[in-house]
């Protein structure tokens, strides 16, 4: 393989690289530059170095939004992964019935966040909401899911799990269909129980899909925005304000573009660190276990 041949090969990748640089690398670099300036959406601004970052470190509203983001991500990703896995296990079979039920569970994923939050407002609102009315029939006081600072993040998590279930379920279904049938036949010949089969064959075979689902969902939920903006507007008193809602309010509500860019860069670094850590940790585990 000669050097000249290498360069010609790169030419084929050039259109992609140019587009990638234009729509991804350039905005990323521009965002970094903006984060070093005090600038609004319509002004020239001036260079402040790491001033915006220093201001963010002392901003309790930003700190709370980061904590909220981590909490809601932890409330969403583990149950979403487990529920999606068990739904996939239950629905991984031929037949019209299973196909219809798969379609039903996937249907929420095609809805826009506006519709999802509208539906869940009707369910969660304590006055005349579905859950509120159900509570009242038992003679209980309806829970204020959208106005209690301790309930509002679980409410967002519930909404998001319902909305996001479809895609991970499909990934798990695809993973399940890749597992060779002869492994199950061998397990049956050995009279292994359902639990042993799941634990010894299914779960190890799904390890890569599991890692993919957890990483994708973690990155996605760390950027949770629409549910928080539309269902609770970040309230009460900032109890459901996520990091992306914080930077949206800073950029487009208060026009503090430099400050919002600094918040975005911090969030970007956090997502990158979490994703790389997950990849590294699961890679080590996979290697140690000799997984598929």
């Amino acid at each position: 393989m000669t050097a000249a041949r290498d360069w010609r090969g790169l030419l084929f990748a050039l259109p992609f690289l140019a587009l990638y640089a234009l729509i991804l690398i350039f905005p990323l670099m521009r965002g970094v530059w903006l984060s070093l300036n005090q600038v609004d959406l319509f002004g020239d601004g001036h260079f402040v170095g790491f001033g915006n970052y220093a201001r963010l470190l002392h901003d309790p509203v930003f700190g709370t939004s980061l904590v909220n983001t981590f909490e809601v991500t932890l409330m969403i990703v583990p149950p979403l992964t487990v529920i999606a896995l068990f739904l996939a296990l239950a629905l991984n079979r031929a037949g019209k019935g299973a196909a219809i039920i798969r379609g039903i569970f996937f249907s929420s994923a095609v809805l826009s966040v506006t519709i999802v939050t509208l539906i869940w407002r009707f369910i969660l609102a304590p006055d005349a909401g579905l859950l509120g009315e159900a509570w009242k029939t038992f003679g209980w006081q309806p829970l204020p899911f959208l106005s209690d600072e301790h309930l509002v993040l679980p409410a967002l998590a519930l909404t998001t799990i319902w909305w996001s279930l479809g895609f991970p379920m499909l990934l798990f279904l695809a993973g399940l269909q890749q597992i060779p049938e002869d492994m199950y036949e061998a397990a049956a010949l050995d009279h292994s129980s359902r639990w042993t089969t799941f634990w010894r064959i299914t779960l190890p075979s799904l390890r890569r899909t599991l890692v993919l689902v957890v990483m994708l969902q973690t990155a996605a939920q760390l950027q949770l925005f629409g549910q928080s903006q539309l269902l609770t507007a970040g309230g009460p008193s900032g109890a459901s304000r996520t990091a992306v809602l914080f930077l949206f309010e800073a950029a487009f509500g208060r026009w503090e573009l430099g400050y919002a860019s600094a918040a975005a860069e911090i969030l970007f670094l956090i997502i990158l660190a979490v994703t790389i850590t997950q990849y590294w940790a699961t890679g080590r585990a996979t290697g140690a276990d000799g997984g598929r």
């Binding site: 106005s147 600072e149 970040g234 309230g235 009460p236 008193s237 900032g238 109890a239 309010e249 509500g253 208060r254 026009w255």
Partner: peptide, 27 residues
């Protein structure tokens, strides 16, 4: 300037004071 954004900030803290989520002086 930024009266709409200020209304949002003041309203959020005022509501926290009114509902008891924060003490009045803190809010």
């Amino acid at each position: 300037q930024r009266q709409s954004a200020i209304e949002g900030l003041v309203g959020e803290e005022a509501a926290a004071a009114f509902t008891g989520q924060k003490s009045v002086p803190q809010a």
